[in-house]
């Protein structure tokens, strides 16, 4: 690994307890989102799809709709939530990559 002394120039540093807090928030968020991910796709659209098909939305059976439309839409929303929450988390821990890049380019 290349030596670099940015830390000495006032770059943000996380001590061990900060790092652990950041990592655990990340893991909690991931676990929640991946649970929803598995529920809409692997559970609703495969394991219990026939059961959900008893309900209709419009003229499309619900299980069918989940498998061919709903789960895809949910995936986009899940990643959007992830991006939003992680950017908030970065901010809370004082991580700002864009500012770092700008500083590096200046120096």
């Amino acid at each position: 690994m290349e030596k670099n002394d940015n830390a000495l120039k006032g770059e943000p540093t996380l001590n061990e307890s900060d790092r652990s807090a950041y990592w655990h928030s990340n893991l909690r968020l991931m676990a929640t989102l991946l649970t929803v991910w598995a529920l809409v796709s692997l559970v609703a659209s495969t394991l219990i799809v026939d059961w959900l098909n008893n309900v209709n939305i419009g003229s499309v059976p619900l299980g069918f709709w989940m498998g061919q439309q709903g789960s895809i839409i949910t995936f986009v929303i899940l990643i959007a939530i992830y991006v939003w929450r992680m950017e908030k988390l970065d901010k809370a821990f004082g991580i700002d990559e864009d500012a770092e890049l700008a500083r590096q380019e200046k120096s």
């Binding site: 940015n6 830390a7 770059e11 540093t13 996380l14 790092r19 990592w23 990559e97």
Partner: peptide, 14 residues
């Protein structure tokens, strides 16, 4: 595991 320049490691390697 952490974005940006975060100091980690036994010798505090940046």
């Amino acid at each position: 595991r952490y974005p940006g320049n975060v100091s980690v490691g036994s010798q505090g390697t940046p």
